[in-house]
């Protein structure tokens, strides 16, 4: 499938408002081309997937979008603004949030504080206000806390708000991480393997959750996922990477029928299975 046709298919479904456009994105680690000439376009409201075998460079793409890595070359435009090479916190403040492959919560803090930290850029009071605990501090802190609590309620975590994050069960930790990412009300959410380590029932619940947050928060979502059930079940459009390059794009049906993808990734129908035994990398 050529780039051209895929872009056309893409445009026919979009409402025309492009939120993210990546062109010619390349990242070298020493001599290794982790990502080579990657391109991607997302329209407002899309729910797209990024798949590929391990080491294909998917997370590196995420890391470049969120500013963890500075691209070797290429451009990333978010709402028309060039963001390649900006610091991660600035990118987040512009409206891109993410979750991590291996959950990265502030594990010794309470559930509430995890969410409140995400509100920090919008705290509404200065450091001096904080040190004097003046009325502006008190007012804004109250508002901030109430918002965080309401937010936790949306994710049905309000009863857990005073628990230490690391004591939550795995599924709730995933949910909290998504809640935390959404707290600052981003426009674009990047999910890095949200279903990792989940059983089929949990994955189904997760898919519902993703659909829900997309509607509720008017989000554009890009997700990396290995569980084919999830990817094929919720993504409207999929980009496939292998060895740092895009090898295919299309709707789930097109991807499943694409011989190159099957060859590189799905294998003889057992890729999803083999992925289950994928060694979890811990940091």
């Amino acid at each position: 499938m050529s780039e051209q046709t895929s872009t056309q298919t893409r445009q026919s479904r979009s409402n025309g408002q492009e939120i993210l456009r990546i062109e010619g994105l390349t990242k070298l680690f020493g001599g290794l081309k982790a990502v080579n000439n990657f391109s991607l376009s997302l329209n407002k409201g899309d729910l797209n997937g990024l798949i590929g075998p391990n080491g294909a460079g998917k997370t590196t793409v995420f890391n470049m979008i969120t500013g963890v890595y500075v691209p070797t070359s290429g451009s990333i435009r978010f709402n028309g603004q060039e963001i390649a090479g900006l610091e991660p916190h600035k990118i987040n403040q512009m409206g891109i949030a993410r979750t991590f492959q291996n959950i990265r919560l502030f594990s010794n803090l309470t559930v509430l504080d995890n969410v409140r930290i995400a509100y920090h850029p919008h705290a509404g009071y200065s450091l001096t206000d904080a040190i004097f605990h003046n009325s502006r501090y008190k007012e804004n802190e109250r508002i901030l806390t109430e918002r965080a609590q309401e937010f936790l309620a949306v994710f049905n975590l309000q009863d857990r708000q005073h628990e230490i994050a690391k004591n939550l069960p795995y599924g709730e930790q995933r949910r909290l991480e998504i809640a935390r990412a959404l707290a600052a009300e981003p426009k674009l959410l990047l999910l890095d393997e949200p279903a990792a380590g989940m059983n089929p029932a949990e994955s189904v619940a997760l898919m519902d959750l993703i659909h829900f947050i997309r509607e509720r928060f008017d989000l554009t979502i890009l997700l990396i996922e290995h569980q084919m059930r999830v990817v094929m079940g919720i993504c409207e459009y999929i980009t496939v990477m292998d060895f740092g390059e895009v090898i295919a794009r299309g709707t789930p049906a097109e991807i499943q029928a694409n011989p190159r993808v099957v060859e590189a990734y799905l294998g003889p129908g057992s890729a999803a299975l083999s992925e289950k035994f994928r060694r979890k990398r811990t940091l």
Binding site: R21, G80, E82
Partner: peptide, 8 residues
């Protein structure tokens, strides 16, 4: 029709 990249 796309806004130009803002990279002074």
């Amino acid at each position: 029709n796309r806004s130009e990249p803002i990279r002074k």
